[in-house]
Amino acid sequence: MAESLETRNFFPALQRNVTPTPSGSTVVSYTSDLGDGSPILTLIHGYPQSAFIWRHIAPTLLGKVSLFIPELPGYGISTRSTPSKRGVGTALLSAIQTLFPGSRSVILAGHDRGARICHRLAVDAASAPPDLKITGAFLIDIVPTKVQWDKFSDPAIARGYFHWPLLANVELAVRMLTAYGGGRWVREAFQLARKSEEGLRRLEDGVEVYVALFEKEETIRGSCEDYEAGAGVDVEEQVADQREGRKIRVPTVVMFSQAGLGARIDVAREWVDWVEEGVPYEGVPVGHGYGHYLPEEAHDIVSEKLVAFLREFSGVKLD
């Protein structure tokens, strides 16, 4: 199954692309281009998943906005690149430039590690390629990486996010997860993150896809290198951002699980210091017991809010 996933199109209504980038990474993505300079919405997945997490949301947007849905480099389908969020984000923007002609606006949307890439790109918006203008950020179930590390002083949070320091120790983590079984690790991860039976039911048809990808040592290593960057260069960049006043300057929505991330962290409040004063910003808790994997567990709620965000801030004309 893992081998066939490397060439499978998860979105038959979209174009599957294999795009070399200057970083050395080859980015696999699924796209739909409405042409005429139409805005592009990214949908970027997180750990331990693939672009398949957007299977419920992408169809609701097809024909309404141009779509760019990448497989994260190092996660089993796209090949590895520089693992920092800035490095991966730059590779993704390069792929967008190749696939979408002309000057375009880009609305960044992502979940988990993908949302961290979106955060980095939103802060760096002024440095985006001249034909790409970043106009919005829609972040799902994260607080800034620096904030998350700071919260490890809370024992309950440290226990819940134990995988952060574990995976950041790449060589040890690769040996341990390979010995334990990457697929077994993924199954356990979904069980540990479970907040409701309904949420688990809604994502279970994707679990075997993610399990198959993490049976490969290269996926385990690539994803661990992502976490290593998240414990090093990504944090250092955010510390410098805050010190030098670099913040998100585009309209921003942060959706989060009230039962999960929001249970011990005031997520909406934490983001206030990371968005430029006066820039439209909203923190949106998701209830009903849904957990971390909101694009699957709460895809209907996420889709509705995403459409509203596009309509209000990104110049997208939706029915």
Score class of each variant (00 low, 15 high):
Ser94Met: 06
Thr90Lys: 14
Ala109Lys: 02
Ile140Lys: 03
Ser84Arg: 12
Arg113Met: 15
Leu72Ala: 06
Leu132Gly: 09
Lys85Ser: 11
Val147His: 10
Gly114Thr: 11
Arg120Tyr: 05
Thr135Lys: 06
Leu132His: 06
Ala128Cys: 03
Gly76Phe: 02
Leu72Arg: 09
Ser78Val: 08
Ala156Arg: 07
Thr145Leu: 15
Ile140Gln: 01
Ala128Tyr: 05
Ser81Trp: 05
Val106Met: 05
Ala115Trp: 01
Lys85Pro: 07
Ser105Ile: 14
Ile107Trp: 06
Ala137Pro: 13
Leu99Tyr: 13
Gln97Tyr: 08
Val147Cys: 08
Ser81Pro: 00
Lys151His: 14
Asp141Gln: 10
Gly110Ser: 13
Asp141Tyr: 10
Thr79Ala: 01
Pro70His: 13
Gly74Asn: 04
Pro83Tyr: 01
Arg86Met: 01
Ala91Arg: 00
Pro83Lys: 03
Ala115Gln: 01
Leu139Val: 00
Ala109Arg: 00
Ser103Trp: 01
Gly76Arg: 00
Asp141Gly: 09
Asp150Trp: 00
Lys133Gln: 13
Leu93Ala: 14
Tyr75Ile: 03
Ser127Met: 06
Phe100Arg: 09
Ala115Cys: 10
Lys146Gln: 14
Ser78Met: 10
Tyr75Trp: 00
Ala122Arg: 03
Ala125His: 07
Ile157Ser: 11
Asp150Val: 03
Tyr75Met: 00
Thr145Phe: 15
Ile142Ser: 07
Ile117Thr: 11
Asp112Leu: 09
Gln97Leu: 07
Leu93Arg: 12
Ala109Met: 07
Cys118Leu: 11
Asp124Leu: 06
Asp154Ser: 06
Arg159Tyr: 01
Arg80Gln: 08
Thr135Asn: 07
Phe138Ser: 08
Ile134Cys: 08
Ser103Pro: 06
Arg116Thr: 10
Leu92Tyr: 09
Ser66Gln: 11
Pro101Phe: 05
Gln148Glu: 15
Ser78Gly: 06
Pro101Glu: 06
Lys85Asp: 02
Ile107Phe: 08
Glu71Ser: 03
Ala137Gln: 08
Pro129Gly: 14
Gly114Trp: 02
Arg104Asn: 11
Thr82Gly: 04
Leu99Gln: 14
Arg113Leu: 15
Thr90Val: 04
Ser103Thr: 14
Pro155Ile: 15
Thr79Glu: 06
Cys118Asn: 05
Pro129His: 14
Arg104Glu: 14
Leu121Met: 09
Ser84Lys: 12
Gly76Gln: 00
Gly87His: 01
Ser103Asn: 02
Asp154His: 02
Pro73Trp: 04
Gly114Leu: 03
Ser84Thr: 15
Ala126Asn: 12
Ala128Trp: 07
Leu139Tyr: 00
Lys146Ala: 15
Ala158Asp: 13
Asp124Lys: 01
Ile96Thr: 07
Leu132Phe: 10
Arg86Phe: 02
Pro155Glu: 02
His119Glu: 11
Val147Ala: 10
Lys85Gly: 09
Gly114Tyr: 01
Pro130Val: 12
